[in-house]
């Protein structure tokens, strides 16, 4: 679905950013439209998670210059919770454990905050349980996880499913999934992939940050971007991802550089 005339959801222009005085992003450009699926790949440390955290508004990361717009509105000044409420979702590469805070309560409060923004009524405990039971099916998660503390003691795969569960409940417009496929066994990967497919719709968009072709076999991206040294150095279609799987980043990097020189 490459509908270049559909509405732009997210646009990032020449984004430079740093963390703890260390510059990490050097001019990222990205346009995401309704209905699109983007994949971002790139070597470790190239800045993929940094980009996703900046989109979600992590306070430690400082934007030096450039802009991020969501549906045409500058979001850089918005608090992270506001960004979540208007429909930006980040599936964390490393979901955080919060001891003592009930997962169910956490899910309910966050779901209601998004519903509020959408002008929908808040759900009480019973209504919410109904909703969550439905969503649990999508990720094939045991309801027992609701009784536990947020992510505490969850296995790697369980944490990732919990992220997709939250995505299902929050019904975002732009979902950024940072290595949601890492550390999953074959079955879990299938569950997560089908979750992503089920949850995507013509009005929303998904950005998959991944290292592996196997997720992209299940969820076909419209665009594949390669990130290196804090920049998107190459954009292509799903073929590019297969290329990388075969030859690694090194080669692609060289080729790109050559082209640049040729130019």
């Amino acid at each position: 679905m490459n509908l270049s005339n559909s509405e732009i959801l997210l646009s990032i222009e020449d984004l430079h950013a740093s963390v703890e005085d260390k510059k990490i992003l050097y001019g990222v450009n990205l346009i995401v439209r309704e209905g699109e699926i983007h994949a971002i790949m790139g070597p470790n440390g190239s800045g993929k998670s940094t980009l996703s955290k900046i989109i979600a508004g992590h306070p430690s990361y400082k934007v030096i210059s450039g802009s991020i717009k969501f549906k045409g509105i500058n979001i850089l000044e918005l608090e992270p919770e506001k960004r979540a409420r208007i429909g930006i979702f980040l599936g964390f590469q490393y979901p955080v454990e919060i001891p003592g805070v009930s997962n169910l309560e956490f899910l309910r409060v966050s779901t209601n905050s998004r519903r509020n923004e959408l002008g929908k009524s808040e759900l009480d405990t019973f209504e919410f349980e109904e909703l969550v039971t439905e969503s649990l099916k999508i990720v094939e998660m045991d309801p027992a996880f609701l009784e536990r503390s947020v992510n505490e003691g969850f296995s790697g795969g369980e944490k990732k499913r919990n992220e997709i569960l939250q995505m299902a409940l929050l019904d975002p417009l732009v979902a950024i999934l940072d290595e949601t496929d890492s550390g999953l066994d074959i079955d879990a990967l299938r569950v997560v992939a089908s979750g992503i497919t089920k949850l995507s719709n013509p009005n929303s968009a998904t950005i998959l940050i991944t290292h592996y072709q196997r997720l992209l076999n299940e969820v076909t991206p419209d665009f594949v971007h390669i990130m290196a040294n804090g920049k998107i150095i190459k954009t292509g279609n799903k073929e590019l991802a297969m290329d990388i799987e075969k030859s690694g980043y090194e080669l692609i990097n060289k080729r790109t550089k050559k082209k640049e020189v040729a130019k």
Binding site: A56, G57, H58, P59, S60, E79, P80, E81, R83, A84, R85, L90, F92, P95, V96, I98, F106, V109, S110, S113, R114, E117, V150, Q166, L170
Partner: peptide, 15 residues
């Protein structure tokens, strides 16, 4: 923890 706070906030829960 800042990370815990950010995690909750990024799910729409206010500060």
């Amino acid at each position: 923890s800042e990370d815990q706070l950010f995690y909750l906030q990024s799910r729409g829960i206010d500060f």
